[in-house]
Simulated scan of single mutants.
Amino acid sequence: MQQRGKKGNTDDLLAASFKELLCKAPMEKITIKDITDKAGVIRPTFYNHFADKYALLEYIVRHDLLEPIKPLLLNDMIQEGLTLLFSSMQNERAFYERAVCIDGQNSFESIARSEVSKLLLEIIDQKKQGKSHKYAWLDRQIIAEYYANSMCYVAIAWIKRDYMISPKDLSEVYKYLTKSSMMDVLNELV
């Protein structure tokens, strides 16, 4: 198994430290010193790896949630990818329950949307290979942002509603919403 190297190890140490701290305190109460003390590194080390706590949160979203699902999405295994994504969030339930409470300019929601959008752009670029959409206005950026917004909304609503259904069921709900027209969904209301 290939090691990620010293930078990867330090990134992971800082991420683990931050996750543990966020489970116990709100974001605004956590200092860089708290994160580095818990990780067992000196404060300047943090800034060699991340600009601030929000960059660390971006890393966690990208590394822990999105990198593992990328191969599945590239191989058209959307359901499996979403189930893995939602399972990962549920497995670190305490962290994500606190993370979704981070609001403002650098909210968890905006960070997640941005990171998901970047991932989807990568996938579109790998799959597109010179193809254009029949609707010229519907470019790669709009497609990525649309699905990033919908995925993040569904995931955050699920967390805020106390994980009411399983990750597999949530991926089914997302599939249903994305494959059905608005009128189909409205007409099926009981």
Rank of each mutant, 00 (worst) to 15 (best):
residue 95 F to Y: 09
residue 96 Y to N: 02
residue 96 Y to D: 03
residue 97 E to N: 04
residue 97 E to C: 08
residue 97 E to G: 02
residue 97 E to M: 08
residue 97 E to L: 06
residue 99 A to K: 01
residue 99 A to G: 00
residue 99 A to Y: 03
residue 101 C to T: 05
residue 102 I to Y: 01
residue 102 I to A: 01
residue 104 G to Y: 07
residue 104 G to S: 01
residue 104 G to H: 03
residue 104 G to T: 03
residue 106 N to Q: 04
residue 106 N to K: 00
residue 107 S to H: 03
residue 108 F to S: 05
residue 109 E to D: 04
residue 109 E to M: 00
residue 110 S to Y: 08
residue 112 A to Q: 11
residue 113 R to D: 04
residue 113 R to W: 02
residue 115 E to K: 12
residue 116 V to L: 14
residue 117 S to E: 15
residue 118 K to G: 03
residue 122 E to T: 08
residue 124 I to G: 04
residue 125 D to A: 14
residue 127 K to A: 13
residue 127 K to G: 13
residue 131 K to W: 06
residue 132 S to K: 14
residue 132 S to W: 08
residue 132 S to L: 10
residue 132 S to D: 12
residue 132 S to Y: 10
residue 134 K to R: 12
residue 134 K to M: 13
residue 134 K to Y: 13
residue 138 L to Y: 12
residue 138 L to K: 11
residue 138 L to N: 09
residue 139 D to T: 05
residue 139 D to N: 15
residue 140 R to H: 12
residue 141 Q to E: 14
residue 142 I to E: 07
residue 145 E to G: 10
residue 147 Y to V: 04
residue 147 Y to I: 07
residue 149 N to A: 12
residue 151 M to C: 06
residue 152 C to T: 14
residue 154 V to Y: 12
residue 154 V to N: 06
residue 154 V to E: 08
residue 155 A to S: 15
residue 156 I to G: 02
residue 158 W to V: 06
